[in-house]
Write a protein that binds this DNA or RNA. Sequence first.
RNA 1: GGAGAGUUGCCGGAGUGGCCGAACGGGUUCGCCUGCUAAGCGAAUGUUCAGGGUAAACCUGGACCGGGGGUUCGAAUCCCCCACUCUCCGCCA
Length: 425
Amino acid sequence: MLDPHVFRDQLDITIQRLRDRYFEFDRSAWSALEIARRKAIQDLEGLKADRNKITDQIRSRKQAQENTSDLLEKQKASSENLAQCEKVMRDIESEWESFLSLIPNVPHVSVPLGQTSGNNQEIKTWGTPRVLDHPQDHIDLGVHLGILDLERATKITGSRFAVLKGAGAQLERALGAFMLDIHLKHGYSEVIPPYLVNPESMYGTGQLPKFENDLFKVPHGESHLYLIPTAEVPITNLYRDEILKETELPVRHCALTPCFRSEAGSYGKDTKGIIRQHQFHKVELVSFTREEDAPQELERLTENAENILEMLELPYRRMLLCTGDMGFSSHKTYDLEVWLPSQQTYREISSCSWFGTFQARRIGLKYRTSPPKGGNRHLHTLNGSALAIGRTWVAIIENGQQADGSIVLPKALVPYMGGLERITL
RNA sequence: GGAGAGUUGCCGGAGUGGCCGAACGGGUUCGCCUGCUAAGCGAAUGUUCAGGGUAAACCUGGACCGGGGGUUCGAAUCCCCCACUCUCCGCCA
């Protein structure tokens, strides 16, 4: 949620920045809502002020043992009016809020303009992509080695689920442990959050109200819960409605969780293999910082993610997403893309974003500035995958493939694989 | 799932239906004192919305004592529903 004040003080520039990301702000609807809201507030507060005054008079008359019946009459007479105003107020307020909640974040000035991923900007590349004459994809390699079983997963659950076996399962587990260990050294504190969250949490990070179709929804009691699509949701909501101390910032957390995505809008894409699954593991980094520290925190966090790729000897590039390709809540996003020999291209393996105060505003997340400044300000939230484990698995299998179909594992991973250097038949 | 006890400001903890936005204590900040520290003394210390003033300070009004309803002229205080926490019982990995 954007600060409503920017629609009063900096309306034109904000509209332009939203247009940059292809969101058309409905100016007249907003202005109508603003006027109606202000009037409703003033009407209601005026009535309440009157009521409070009379109540005060009743009290002092009672103390003086005087007659109060005329005041009581007056008070009763206005109560209906007040109830009416309250209803108007409630309706307007919720309309006003839902209008705001559907507006995406504005892009940072450094974000390149453009509508599609073709306009993303390459910031850097690392490593030398392997170009093979006859590359096999992770499906052929995995099935052949007996470490990946898609057919049985389909039997158990359905499409877009996988079973990992033997060294494949071990590799998945090793990757999670390896990544977490590195991020502990990077200064993140590990968290294991719930994998089911309530609707408020989903609203807080911006998945709701717009993207419910992408989520798995689970009935629970009178209400329902959602399976997390990323650890971003529970971790960012950790401090909801709290005021942190400036001295304890930045707060950095990492978490390994399963992620569940319904991917309702992606039926045609990546139908084969485990690139796009309904369930996958991911190590997520989340940072909470002051405004002035946020830009460099995004760089730091992205570098922490890149560090994993480098330690795993996987060629990648860093892309700065253009305005049209950014997520709803994002202020600025870098994607890391890993080289996949079978596709002869780079594929997304991490997304690192800075949200400004967009999420903090929805979540009620602030920090208390130290005197003499004083006062509370919204925190800046950031997060990034570091990394998506399923796709890392794919990248390791494909990049490590040998002519004989075996997989040479990155050196950094060997200790986590019980000394195993190569996956063979 | 059953029974009971709770939920108040940064923290602890009072609060008879009416100057209670909330006693008291602690913490924190500022000042005084002090060779330094501690102690002591004095003062300050909520959020948010609307309006006025705007560089700010500030002023006026509304709301907020877990959340939502209700009773009442008036609710932190009474009633109902819900959530959460704690203790005991049951069940369970």
